[in-house]
């Protein structure tokens, strides 16, 4: 027996329930994104593993021989990789999802479906990519003799927290991009700045040691910075003694949840005019 409800309820119905009913579409779109990405390449899915390793090599060489950021950091290549993989997850999710609604203009004009599925599917496909890349990373860590920290059990929660953050940001950005196409350009610049505001190739101690306490606090309000520290403590067992990770972890979770709720709210508010704006 099918529910006697319209497929696309017009108002006052739970948006989450609607997205849940379209979960199959979410999976299919993510699958489409993944298969299409590697369909015509020789190495195929191997690229999702090879790409971060090659980037890590470049970063490790540049920042240890040019910038000397490696001083005081043991296992510098592994250190970079543990920060760069979450970074890549963020950067590709956002740069791809920002266009997801605009690119699907044709579909939006023709078919009724919860539109937030479009950016969410991009985040989902990048999450799968990220998880795939974690497998050789764990192998590499084991091979290098680096023991994971006790936080390894919290790894799913850390990943979930980042996924929540990216879901919120991608919904916000894709809806904002319909309103003004500048968003894509602004995002590129913002990501460039954010790369240096996150401890990808330097350790957060450098920030904590050199700037006043209040500024350091502001630095860790960026949930991505906290998440990278958390990823490293889980994967490599690196401790940051001057930080209480439980407090900052809770802050990151709070910030990510807030980003998700606000991004979703913004998306649902804007999506009413998508058909006319596109």
């Amino acid at each position: 027996m099918r529910l006697a409800l319209p497929v696309f309820p017009r108002r006052n119905r739970s948006r989450a329930f609607l997205v849940w009913r379209y979960r199959h579409l979410l999976v299919q779109l993510a699958k489409r994104d993944l298969t299409a990405r590697y369909k015509n390449s020789v190495l195929g899915v191997v690229w999702s593993l090879l790409h971060p390793f090659l980037m890590m090599l470049i970063l490790a060489v540049v920042f240890s021989y040019v910038g000397r950021f490696n001083v005081g950091i043991p296992h510098y290549p592994a250190f970079i990789l543990c920060g760069y993989l979450p970074w890549l997850f963020l950067a590709t999710s956002l740069t791809t999802s920002v266009r997801s609604v605009v690119d699907a203009a044709n579909l939006i004009h023709k078919v009724a479906f919860p539109r937030e599925v479009l950016p969410l599917a991009i985040v989902l496909s990048n999450l799968v990519n990220f998880l795939l890349a974690l497998v050789p990373l764990l192998g590499y860590l084991a091979f290098s003799g680096i023991a994971p920290g006790p936080g390894l059990f919290a790894l799913p929660a850390i990943i979930g927290c980042q996924a929540l953050l990216l879901a919120g940001l991608s919904m916000f950005l894709s809806a904002a991009n319909v309103y003004a196409r500048d968003v894509g350009v602004v995002l590129e610049v913002a990501l460039f700045a954010l790369f240096y505001l996150c401890p990808v190739f330097y350790s957060p101690e450098m920030i904590l040691d050199t700037v006043p306490r209040a500024v350091a606090g502001a630095y860790f309000l960026n949930p991505m910075a906290t998440l990278m520290v958390l990823y490293r403590s889980a994967l490599m067992g690196t401790a940051t003694p001057s930080l209480d990770m439980r407090i900052w972890g809770a802050t990151a979770l709070l910030a990510s949840s807030a980003a998700c709720v606000l991004g979703w709210w913004f998306f649902v508010w804007r999506q009413r005019s998508f058909v006319e704006e596109l």
Partner: peptide, 30 residues
């Protein structure tokens, strides 16, 4: 359920096979 008999080729992904596109478009229609 409301179904629309429209030109759905807009929802097809060129790199995917016909069968894969059936899965995708079926999901799109709910």
């Amino acid at each position: 359920r409301v179904g629309a008999l429209l030109d759905l080729s807009a929802g097809f992904h060129p790199e995917l096979t016909g069968l894969e596109n059936i899965d995708l478009n079926g999901a799109l229609l709910g």
